[in-house]
């Protein structure tokens, strides 16, 4: 339970961090909250030769409104997300999901940037960001670019981020009128990854769903954006038939592994149950219920 040797770096700016990352290439890893990376290092499943700690980098811990959209600095902790009443009012699913992540100690250190950038399909925020149609801001030696959350995840712990890029911020579009959000997570205990979890963001306009997004956590090799499920709700009254169709479409794209919490069939069924509950909750919230 002791990591292999590594060199520790503590840059003071994003530019400095990017140049360290460029210099060390594959041998370098950035450290945010450390609650995924450090356990992996202690088990020697990860042995980065250079650890680039972003905790000294200025300007990455912030929550701001920019032209209606929400900008969250990548080093903002889950605890800070939960503590922000303003954020909870503008985008309630963030607090709802963050409170289901790990435990208070982990949330005090764990960051939203680390949660989405690690590419762990078990992390909760990627599906939430997919449902919100958020985008991620990346800085590399060639400058800054923005990628949609829905396009970001490529495989287990593999993302569209280049090795020499750092995720610096998340941008979440403004919540329109009639939008309801919900995150439902089935887990055994505090600190556990989801057996199955679903994020749903939908907008009700005069009894009809004008826009819907469903995304799933820990049910495949990446976080999953359930496009067909989302489409199955759009344009409907989100009635029983539409929900059934959406649930079926969501379950269809899942491909979880069996683990100690249950076999594949159970986890897929629970994907359906969580999707159903998230849709019903989001619809109720959208209509003020």
């Amino acid at each position: 339970m002791i990591p292999a040797n590594f060199e520790y770096h503590r840059p003071g700016s994003v530019d400095e961090a990017v140049s360290l990352l460029t210099e060390h290439g594959e041998d370098g890893r950035v450290l945010a909250g450390g609650h995924s990376l450090i356990p992996m290092m202690k088990l020697r499943l990860a042995e980065p030769a250079h650890l680039i700690d972003l905790n000294g980098v200025e300007g990455l811990r912030s929550i701001a409104e920019v032209e209606g959209a929400i900008h969250i600095g990548a080093m903002t902790t889950q605890a800070e997300i939960i503590a922000s009443d303003d954020l909870a009012a503008r985008c309630p699913i963030l607090r709802e999901a963050a409170e289901l992540i790990a435990d208070p100690q982990v949330r005090a250190c764990g960051t939203i940037g680390g949660n989405v950038a690690n590419g762990d399909p078990g992390n909760d925020m990627p599906a939430v960001m997919m449902a919100l149609d958020a985008s991620f801001v990346l800085r590399g030696p060639g400058g800054e670019r923005s990628l949609a959350a829905r396009e970001f995840y490529e495989g287990p712990f593999e993302t569209a981020r280049d090795d020499d890029e750092i995720l610096t911020a998340l941008r979440i579009p403004a919540r329109g009128a009639g939008q309801g959000q919900a995150y439902c997570k089935l887990k055994r205990k505090v600190g556990d990854y989801a057996i199955a979890a679903a994020a749903v963001v939908l907008t009700m306009d005069g009894g009809t769903c004008s826009q819907a997004a469903v995304a799933l956590t820990n049910l495949g090799i990446t976080p999953l954006y359930a496009e067909a499920a989302s489409a199955a709700l759009t344009g409907t009254a989100v009635d029983a038939a539409a929900i059934e169709a959406a649930v079926e479409a969501a379950v269809a794209i899942t491909d979880p592994a069996a683990d100690l919490h249950g076999p594949v069939v159970y986890r897929r069924r629970m994907a359906g149950v969580m999707t159903r509950r998230a849709i019903e909750t989001a619809r109720a919230r959208a209509t003020g219920g």
Binding site: L186, I195, G262, R269
Partner: peptide, 16 residues
């Protein structure tokens, strides 16, 4: 009595 084992009983009984 984990959730999945109990669910399995429900499922076998057709009440899930």
């Amino acid at each position: 009595h984990t959730a999945w084992r109990v669910w399995q009983t429900c499922h076998d009984l057709g009440i899930d």
